[in-house]
């Protein structure tokens, strides 16, 4: 069981390593979206500090969505997805492995870049830590819920835009708790409550999302 999970993860990471161009696109997308905001709003430091956490979080949502529509699509096209669906292991493990791999490939880099972007927004050191921490708990949620959308829209026209439409509303709690935690540090109201709620949401996604996206995959491949 676990071996299958690890094989799926290793496979996807290996494939991403062979296609670094695609991978870099998503990371630069994240950096650019965040950098556009000061240009649109103005360089006033206190203003930037207020909007900083939210902007970084929204950009993280968008960056994760950008890479999501290809989560299953590439494997679907060359037939490897069918082969994996016919493997002896439960399909929910496949979707879980794919979501974890997506997080390793796209989520972890966001954690590393986020502090740099936070500095651009004039965030103090504690807030930067909290930003990384909240993203560390929150980005797996994005990958897990996103895998449902990717499975539902597999092989459809305009899949990318459609995933965004379906999944964005489901991301709302993660955004609120995640950005809220950073803001709690900035305003001094504390962020434990936010983090625990974010953690609870992560647990729930971890338990439910792989099953749902396994069912969705079966529906879509049929």
């Amino acid at each position: 069981m676990l071996k299958f999970l690890f094989t799926v993860i290793r496979r996807d990471v290996l494939l991403a390593a062979r296609r670094r161009g695609d991978w870099l696109t998503a990371q630069f997308f994240f950096v650019m979206v965040v950098s556009m905001f000061p240009l649109g709003i103005g360089p006033e430091p206190s203003m930037l500090r207020t909007i900083g956490p939210g902007v970084v979080w929204v950009a993280a949502l968008l960056a994760s969505l950008l890479s999501l529509d290809r989560l299953f699509a590439d494997d679907y096209r060359d037939g490897t997805l069918e082969q994996m669906l016919m493997s002896p292991s439960p399909i929910a493990l496949l979707t879980l492995g794919k979501a974890i791999a997506h997080w390793i490939i796209n989520g972890i880099p966001l954690l590393l870049i986020a502090p740099l972007l936070g500095i651009q927004f004039n965030l103090p050191a504690e807030a930067l830590w909290m930003l990384v921490l909240s993203l560390a708990i929150g980005t797996p949620i994005l990958s897990l819920l996103g895998s449902i959308g990717a499975a539902l829209t597999l092989g459809l026209r305009g899949g990318g835009a459609l995933v965004t439409l379906l999944i964005m509303p489901l991301y709302v709690p993660a955004l609120i708790f995640g950005a809220g935690a950073v803001e709690g540090v900035l305003s001094g109201t504390g962020s434990e409550a936010h983090l625990s709620l974010l953690g609870a949401f992560l647990m729930m996604s971890l338990l439910l999302a792989p099953w749902v996206s396994a069912m969705a995959l079966k529906v879509s491949v049929e």
Partner: peptide, 13 residues
Amino acid sequence: LLNLVGVINVPII
């Protein structure tokens, strides 16, 4: 499937 995911999420949202 999307409806079911949505209805679980509505209270959380």
